[in-house]
Design a protein around this nucleic acid. Sequence first.
DNA 1: GTAACTGCAAAATATTTGCATCCTT
DNA 2: AAGGATGCAAATATTTTGCAGTTAC
Lengths: 130, 130
Amino acid sequence: MSNKNRRHTKTQQMVLDYFENTDGAVSHEMVEKSLGDSMNRVTIYRILNRFEEDGIVHKIVGDDGVSYYARCESACDHDHHHDNHIHFRCEKCNSINCLEQSISIDLPKNYQMTNINFLITGICASCNKE
Amino acid sequence: MSNKNRRHTKTQQMVLDYFENTDGAVSHEMVEKSLGDSMNRVTIYRILNRFEEDGIVHKIVGDDGVSYYARCESACDHDHHHDNHIHFRCEKCNSINCLEQSISIDLPKNYQMTNINFLITGICASCNKE
DNA sequence: GTAACTGCAAAATATTTGCATCCTT
DNA sequence: AAGGATGCAAATATTTTGCAGTTAC
């Protein structure tokens, strides 16, 4: 389903590097703030969409309505990037990270699952100190 | 925190009735399609926001980026409408409903939770038959 | 050389705000 | 009558699309 002919470009590599050097999930806004001088905002949209389409990252939509992207774990293949652990979004520092806890899902009969989006919002430990 | 002086109006009652007569969660678009002739789209935005603010409904953000609203269970009070069960969004019929399964959350030390958003996307049983 | 990728402008969507008016209390 | 709620227009975001120019392969 997914593998179009993709090309390796500088811009994409920069975004990949950004993922590599960033803890937790990443939003369009964050990429733009970081790399916006080197590339157009539209390009960022397109790169993020492409990455998701290709299974390189998965998307987590926050209860703030913002889309965050995180590199997929090894387990992800191109058509299934299920992600049955919980993400935590800190309202203060606006980071999204994975919690250890993972969920075993008990879907009712005849239900079929294509995507999981588990998100808890609140204050993370480091922000809670202050 | 929440109780402003609210007034009882026809428009709001219509939206409430719509919730009552609809299974599962409801999006702005659905309300507008249903009641758009009787009220302005902006009014719908404001009513839905107000309802959420007042704890009358809670918001679930789909991985499609769309906000859905569902009437709160009895357990909800004004400041805490935690909703630790899983919602299921059907990509075909675009309904959102609650699954029975609820999740016990095991938050790491010093984490503080303000909101839960558990959503599985896929095909529901009735759509899966066809 | 071909087709993917990018940048810019513009279009399409989605949501919010200002303000005059209407309606609940 | 005071101020919350609504409608309309306009302002803000946010995301997508068209197309020409550029670059990877």
